[in-house]
Design a protein around this nucleic acid. Structure first.
Lengths: 222, 222
DNA sequence: GCGGATCGTGGAGACATCGTGGAGAAGCGG
DNA sequence: CCGCTTCTCCACGATGTCTCCACGATCCGC
């Protein structure tokens, strides 16, 4: 039985294009052009995933997403016009599962959808392959090797590893790094990422565990 | 026989959602919406785990957790509104076993519950090789040699040995050292660690039993 | 492509934490 | 009250860590 994707997009051509590709990938699709209709539709006929344009007539995609989250845990992939907007999204902490920014290739969208659904199906007890975070002991083990991390590096890795694949803005990461909410340049995060990366690649030079998302932040590769 | 989870959550929809997922994962569930009712309920019918919302009408989740701890060792998973609060909670050392922050996916909650229960089942009977703590006699034996410890040193070693590998902050250790919660500088802990280390290395000069975790605290090597 | 923004990196100085010896206070038994 | 042990704190140096800067590389939107 195939999965249903609800496409919320006000531009008909784009909606049709996405629907085509998604159907070709084996999904069932439904389309909505109006933000107001999303919540009722999801209630009445819950899809397996919602592909949500940020710019909608009448109703902002952000509101829609928030409303969905009040009653549903359905995975949401946001579609935004520009990279810069992702920043704003992250700050608002709205609970989307992934983001795609225009201009995108339909194949890219399909790939994201597939990835999010895979993540949603599999129990999230997974974590990152080869990475063990020993919270009590303030230790991290990567491919069997104990990492010699500073406190900040440990907290950074722990924060990222708590939600593999999820992008964290620098500000979000700073919140995790400092319980006392001290004021620090967000470029400081870059420095710690640099040092952390160095220690990680001592263990596995071939793998890029921490990925930068341009204009957004960092995430841990799943 | 399945395990019972007590859900304490004042929002009915959320409680129902969590109950659904937990039942789907094979647990029995019970729900309470009121913080005041928790302790009596746990006394009357002890669950295997309590899922506790931090924000409760009438009674703070923190108080509830503290009250539970006065008479029960039941595992507690706290649910908090925001990421930032988790750090605060961690500092407060209130005795919860894990934390989940909103917005969370029910799947994530199930994963945490599973992890905490797994941890709770596994007997914590591990110890430190060569180290015996004679609780009644206020004595410690290390590699066959009786250690001549002062009372504070003994309590320090006992606290660390209760959870080998786990890092204790200086404040946490001070709580263990003084039942009367007197006010003492953190650095005092350092002094006692210094003296304790000296006595330990008289027995085994080659081994570094007490390890400092920079910026965090001390732990006993496993 | 071009300009502007963002990011990776090395390194230096500021900063925090830790180990230590020892001084004085506090307990405690005689 | 005395002598002893123990505790707490202080001060200093040693060590470890953080933060930021500056430069070049990279990426993005036009």
């Amino acid at each position: 039985m195939s999965e249903r994707i609800l496409i919320v997009e006000d531009e008909p051509k784009l909606a049709a294009l996405l629907a085509d590709y998604l159907r070709a990938a084996g999904y069932e699709t439904a389309c909505l052009a109006d933000g107001l209709a999303v919540a009722p539709s999801v209630r009445a006929h819950p899809p397996d995933l919602v592909l949500l344009d940020l710019m909608l007539p009448g109703r902002d995609g952000l509101d829609v997403c928030r409303e969905l989250r009040t009653f549903s845990q359905v995975p949401v992939v946001m579609v935004t016009a520009r990279v810069e907007e992702i920043d704003r999204l992250l700050g608002l902490e709205l609970g989307a599962d992934d983001y795609v920014c225009k201009p995108f290739s339909p194949r890219e969208v399909v790939a994201r959808v597939r990835a999010v659904l895979r993540r949603a199906h599999r129990p999230p007890a997974d974590g990152v392959p080869g990475l063990v975070i020993d919270d009590d002991g303030y230790r991290a083990i990567y491919d069997g090797h104990a990492l010699d991390l500073t406190p900040v590096e440990f907290r950074l890795l722990r924060a990222l590893a708590a939600h593999p694949g999820r992008v964290f803005s620098r500000d979000q990461l700073l919140d995790h790094l400092y319980p006392d909410h001290r004021v620090v340049t967000d470029r400081t995060v870059d420095s710690h990422v640099k040092n952390l990366r160095r220690k990680l690649e001592q263990v596995r030079p071939d793998r890029e565990l921490i990925r930068s998302i341009y204009g957004v932040g960092y995430k841990l590769e799943e």
